[in-house]
């Protein structure tokens, strides 16, 4: 078996370089897709025959919610890999991803509440979908504060990985909450097996927003993971050279 890639992944310098190379691509593609998606969704997509124009909130609500959950699953996978192979990169990813995941969860909850007011007549109900999303937000906060609680890096990575893995229970609850319990929330917009229950001129901009948000999310992770690397590798020669290079550029 060829382990070269695996070993490279363990090299912070290589990871820093590849992150720097990929960053402009993800950032520009992500931002362009988001701009296209927002303009399309706000001005060109048809309004919903029941909800009118408040329906347009879907173009920010659904992508945020998808990213909020998918970020958590990525963190959970990193946590497993980190616990088994004791890699530095997985912990750096978790450190970078937790605040971003929290931000997306907050946005999903906030836009959902604002959308709920004109649609359901209330900002908030304590139903399964909304409550489990709130739990997800607290899980992100938990990971973030746990990481600040200890000084020992080993302890930080281990404890946050365990917390993340315990919290994974919440993800299927979020996903199936709309099927298991009676809820105001509508079922999933996109599924892999069925065609969306809306016309293409409605779901195409939504799909663009979802892809755009994935790219934007990746760019944010790359930005933050670079800081993590530099911070942890500050004593090494290559970080020294990097700082000298940066100064020469300014």
């Amino acid at each position: 078996m060829n382990w070269t890639f695996f070993h490279k992944l363990g090299s912070p310098k290589w990871l820093y370089e590849i992150s720097s190379k990929l960053l402009p691509w993800f950032l520009s593609i992500g931002v362009s897709l988001l701009v296209i998606g927002v303009i399309w969704g706000l001005a060109f997509a048809p309004q919903d025959y029941q909800q009118g124009n408040s329906f347009r909130i879907i173009y920010v609500h659904v992508p945020s919610a998808i990213l909020a959950q998918s970020c958590y699953m990525m963190m959970a996978m990193s946590a497993v890999v980190g616990l088994v192979w004791k890699m530095k990169i997985t912990d750096m990813f978790i450190a970078s991803a937790a605040p971003i995941g929290a931000a997306f969860t907050f946005l999903a909850l906030f836009t959902g509440a604002v959308w709920g007011k004109p649609t359901w007549g209330t900002w908030w109900v304590w139903d399964a979908r909304l409550t489990s999303m709130l739990v997800l937000l607290f899980l992100y906060f938990g990971v973030m504060s746990l990481r600040n609680a200890f000084d020992d890096t080993n302890m930080v990575s281990k404890s946050s990985a365990i917390l993340i893995l315990v919290g994974v229970v919440n993800i299927p609850i979020i996903k199936y909450s709309v099927e298991w319990w009676n809820t105001l929330h509508q079922p999933a917009t996109f599924t892999l097996t069925e065609k969306p229950a809306m016309p293409p001129e409605m779901w195409v901009p939504l799909l663009i927003m979802v892809i755009g948000m994935y790219c934007f999310f990746t760019a944010l992770i790359l930005l933050r993971i670079r800081n993590e690397i530099v911070n942890r590798e500050r004593k090494t020669k290559w970080v020294r050279c990097l700082i000298l290079d940066q100064k020469a550029q300014i």
Binding site: V38, L42, R56, L107, F110, W115, P118
Partner: peptide
């Protein structure tokens, strides 16, 4: 509602 959402995002 719409602008509050998009603005916050």
């Amino acid at each position: 509602y719409v602008w509050l959402c998009y603005g916050t995002v």
